Amino acid sequence: MPHLSPNPDLAPALIVIDMQLRLAPAMADYQQVCARVDLLSQVATILELAHIITEQNPQGLGATDPCLVTPNAKVVAKDTFSAVQSEAFIAALEPLGESHLYLCGMESHVCVYHTANELQRQGHAVTVIADAVCSRNSDHKALALQQLRANGVQVCASETVIFSWLNSCKHPRFKEVLALIK
């Protein structure tokens, strides 16, 4: 199972799955999850990490919550539940090379689940950020995270991810990132 220790050969990349406003009212804990995804997006921007945002059927479900779209994010539309089956997503992923992919978004038991499993089966290092995913039903989220772990996908908290991205308190952007967390 991959772990969060920095591997210089695997650059981190943040993947935000389907955080679209039209879906938000139906989600359990959307505001808390949105705050976590926003924090992760801000840190990814500060650390200049690759950042991909997917939108499920944007013609029908609308755009990503605008507070989550950062200047360095690449937004891609998809109509498949697994982003891996989307040509636009694969095209956005290819330039990253071998990366450790950190997934957040919604819904935990559908698009996040299928994307994480498929990426992991293809040999990618994958971490799902537990406090940055949601579903309409909290039980569905819990079951999805349990099954992802059983399938070998790493699941952890957003702060664990952020501190792994920094690796050390000597990171030149440590204080700037720490200010966002406090």
Rank of each mutant, 00 (worst) to 15 (best):
T54W: 09
T54I: 09
Q56M: 06
Q56F: 09
Q56V: 04
N57S: 14
N57T: 12
P58M: 07
P58S: 07
P58T: 07
Q59C: 13
G60L: 13
L61T: 08
G62I: 08
G62Q: 10
G62M: 09
G62P: 09
G62D: 08
A63V: 14
A63K: 15
A63G: 15
T64W: 06
T64A: 08
D65R: 07
D65F: 04
P66I: 05
P66Q: 06
C67G: 07
C67K: 10
L68P: 03
L68E: 03
V69K: 05
V69L: 04
V69Q: 06
V69F: 04
T70G: 02
T70M: 09
P71E: 13
A73V: 09
A73N: 06
K74S: 15
V75N: 07
V75D: 08
V75L: 11
V76N: 11
V76I: 15
A77V: 15
A77W: 15
A77C: 14
K78L: 10
K78D: 08
D79C: 15
F81V: 07
F81R: 05
S82D: 03
S82E: 03
A83H: 07
V84R: 11
Q85V: 06
Q85N: 14
Q85K: 13
Q85W: 11
S86M: 11
S86D: 10
S86G: 10
E87D: 15
A88H: 14
I90E: 14
I90K: 12
I90Q: 15
A91C: 14
A92N: 12
A92M: 12
A92E: 11
L93F: 13
L93I: 14
L93W: 13
P95V: 15
G97E: 11
E98P: 09
E98D: 15
S99R: 14
S99T: 10
H100Q: 14
H100A: 13
Y102N: 06
Y102V: 11
Y102K: 02
L103G: 03
L103Y: 02
C104P: 01
C104G: 01
C104A: 05
G105C: 00
M106H: 00
E107D: 01
S108I: 00
H109C: 03
H109M: 01
H109Y: 00
V110K: 01
V112A: 02
V112R: 00
Y113E: 01
Y113G: 00
Y113V: 00
T115H: 07
T115K: 06
T115D: 06
A116L: 05
A116C: 05
N117W: 07
N117I: 13
N117R: 12
Q120R: 12
R121V: 12
Q122R: 13
Q122T: 05
G123E: 09
G123V: 09
G123M: 09
H124T: 08
H124F: 12
A125M: 10
T127R: 05
T127I: 06
T127N: 06
A130H: 04
D131E: 03
A132C: 02
A132E: 01
V133K: 02
C134D: 02
S135T: 00
S135N: 00
N137Q: 04
S138V: 06
S138P: 07
S138F: 03
S138H: 03
D139A: 11
D139T: 07
D139Q: 12
H140P: 00
H140S: 05
K141H: 04
K141P: 02
L143A: 11
L145C: 04
L145M: 05
Q146P: 02
Q146T: 11
Q147S: 04
L148Q: 01
L148V: 02
L148I: 03
L148M: 07
L148N: 01
